[in-house]
């Protein structure tokens, strides 16, 4: 066995009974009738991201049916571009896009959220925009005869009436604290 194979063997994750909770996804089942999935694979075949990435929608749906909680740690659920192709084509109308977004909600609650996404939430809290304005755009706006700042929440912040933006930051999209870095592929301890 080569070194790399050996370390792979050591780091391999095995699923245990603790990784399964048939009750956990009950909410998703109620919304999406996910148990009517016949694993036909139309979702995977339609997937515009899965054509190039590791995202296998059918696999994810199967895991949810089995109550496999490891799916919440799976980075692949974040590769869906929400193009709704699978939603449109699913013969059982399971709405896989919706299921993936529900999974992301659970994953976020567990703190499984990428630093880049945290940054986007930060922009929203601080400026009211996911893409804040920059100086060059302000110049261009003036050149085109528009107001330097668009009349959005951000403008009213700089005009000294920023209370709404403060409320926005305080009550919206509260994320769990950043997890401490663990060694990759090592199983995290349950609480």
């Amino acid at each position: 066995m080569s070194d790399s194979e050996q370390s792979e063997e050591q780091n391999r994750e095995f699923k245990t009974d603790e990784d399964f909770d048939p009750e956990f996804f009950r909410n998703i089942e109620r919304k999406s009738k996910i148990f009517s999935c016949i694993q036909c694979g139309t979702c995977t075949a339609s997937c515009e991201s899965g054509k190039w990435t590791a995202l296998k929608t059918r696999n994810i749906i199967r895991k949810v049916c089995l109550g496999d909680l490891t799916v919440l740690k799976d980075p692949d659920i974040w590769l869906c571009t929400t193009c709704f192709a699978c939603w449109e084509r699913c013969p059982r109308n399971i709405q896989p896009t919706g299921v993936i977004m529900e999974l992301r909600n659970y994953a976020t609650k567990l703190g499984n959220i990428s630093p880049n996404h945290r940054a986007v939430v930060g922009y929203l809290g601080n400026t009211g925009h996911a893409v804040p304005i920059n100086d060059i755009t302000k110049e261009r706006r003036k050149e085109l005869g528009l107001d330097e700042l668009p009349p959005t929440l951000f403008k009213y912040k700089t005009e000294g009436e920023g209370k709404e933006l403060e409320n926005f930051k305080e009550f919206m999209f509260d994320l769990p604290p950043v997890k401490e870095e663990k060694k990759p592929k090592k199983k995290e301890e349950k609480k």
């Binding site: 515009e48 991201s49 990435t53 974040w78 590769l79 869906c80 571009t81 929400t82 193009c83 192709a85 990428s114 880049n116 996404h117 940054a119 986007v120």
Partner: peptide, 13 residues
Amino acid sequence: TCCGAGGGVKAFD
């Protein structure tokens, strides 16, 4: 087909 930007993918990966 999709341009590949949506769903937070452009920010995520």
